[in-house]
């Protein structure tokens, strides 16, 4: 095999791999609040990754970005999401229509998304984009994450999972951005983060509107033409 990566690259790759696993966790998780929790963990990991890259490549900007991203994605977004999910005024209550919204059995869903992840992996791998600054593996994992997030949005037929799939898709893109262009000016990164916050609010409104009309978060109700 090729040479062993250094400890920093190895750690960055391992963190990226755990993020991908969490994406699979969201796919399997039955309850919306557990999905939100996994999303928070995934976002925390991306901040840790930013710190690792900052320490490795001596980019002090990234520390600020890590802190900002943690404040927004680990604290604010899950909080807003939990508030906006209907039925979650009482914290222990699960919004209706999320559990059991699998269109495939969990084991088949995992196998199908493994195939998707493989496509993402090898598609990016064959581009040979990696370099000393950008570990090819973390980039490929980011692509796989995007595909798995798409899989999550397709396989689960409830609006809460689909919103979470969209947000974690953004995590995958942040991962790719962090790996490829760690030196991006802080102002751009901040702008992207606030874009995400807007998306969260919009999704939250859509979730509430759908719940108000259908009394459920399941999108199965949307296939009928007349209510």
């Amino acid at each position: 095999m090729t040479g062993v990566p250094g400890v920093y690259t190895g750690a960055a790759n391992a963190i990226a791999a755990v993020m991908l696993l969490l994406e699979f966790g969201m796919l399997r998780q039955a309850l919306a609040r557990d999905q939100v929790r996994l999303y928070a963990v995934q976002s925390a990991l991306i901040s840790v990754l930013a710190v690792v890259i900052a320490a490795d490549r001596n980019l002090p900007d990234l520390y600020a970005l890590a802190a900002l991203s943690a404040a927004l994605k680990v604290v604010a977004v899950p909080l807003v999401l939990r508030r906006l999910l209907p039925g979650s005024v009482v914290v222990s209550e699960e919004p209706p229509g999320v559990a059991g919204s699998h269109t495939l059995s969990p084991a088949s869903a995992v196998l199908a998304t493994i195939a998707l992840a493989a496509f993402g992996f090898f598609a990016v791998g064959s581009l040979h984009m990696g370099g000393p600054g950008a570990p090819a593996l973390a980039l490929a994992i980011a692509a796989a994450m995007v595909f798995v997030a798409f899989g999550l949005m397709i396989i689960r037929k409830d609006v809460a999972s689909q919103a979470i799939g969209f947000f974690s898709l953004e995590n995958g893109i942040s991962l790719a951005a962090l790996v490829v262009a760690a030196g991006l000016p802080l102002i751009f990164e901040t702008a992207f983060l606030f874009d995400l916050l807007v998306a969260v609010v919009v999704f939250g409104m859509l979730i509430r509107a759908h719940h108000g009309r259908a009394d459920s978060l399941s999108t199965a109700d949307l296939t009928r033409l007349r209510g």
Partner: peptide, 10 residues
């Protein structure tokens, strides 16, 4: 995933 990560080298 373990095998995948090895295929991209490193």
């Amino acid at each position: 995933l373990g095998v995948f990560t090895l295929y991209l080298g490193g």
